[in-house]
């Protein structure tokens, strides 16, 4: 069961990546081809499998399994503070997605290939005009289900 994620409207790294509902919910803005059922992220109009312009916008479940990851020891040029963790996740819909990973207390030792993760939202960096920028992140499902903060 997907936990509904709420978003209070802070500036997003790329609004095209997100679907926000009137009820304040937010999800990943994916695409699904009405002809061949292939899923995409980010959303795109043309299906690369069947070459039809039949891809419909769809919210993605935000649930997936960790493929691989690494923990950066240096702050990034974009302004991300270190340490920060990033990796690839295979979503339920068959889409592989890049994401920053959020783990309680930066205890990245809990990560392993195949670990179940769930989408969340988090701070990315402050841009050059001083605005806080947010994006999607992935976190262990137990964090969302009440096992963590």
């Amino acid at each position: 069961m997907t936990t509904k994620l709420n978003w209070d409207g802070g500036k997003l790294v790329n609004p095209d990546f997100f679907l926000t509902g009137e009820d304040g919910s937010v999800s990943l803005r994916g695409g699904v081809c009405a002809t061949c059922n292939k899923y995409f992220f980010p959303y795109k109009e043309i299906c690369t499998v069947c070459f039809q312009k039949t891809v419909k916008e769809t919210p993605l479940s935000g649930r997936g399994k960790l493929v691989s990851w690494s923990v950066a020891s240096q702050p990034s040029i974009m302004g991300l503070e270190s340490p920060y963790c990033f990796g690839y996740i295979d979503l339920e819909e068959g889409v592989r997605i890049y994401s920053l990973l959020e783990v309680k207390d930066n205890n990245f030792e809990v990560l392993y290939k195949g670990k179940e993760l769930q989408m969340t939202m988090g701070f990315l960096y402050q841009n050059i005009t001083g605005e806080d920028i947010y994006t999607y992140k992935f976190t262990p499902v137990e964090t969302i289900n009440g096992g963590g903060d």
Binding site: V13, S68, S70, A72, S76, F86, Y98, S99
Partner: peptide
Amino acid sequence: LEGSMGFFPPGIFAMFAR
């Protein structure tokens, strides 16, 4: 996409190593 969210070149090879 990746570059806008903290990815940098050693990252992919770090994943090979993993």
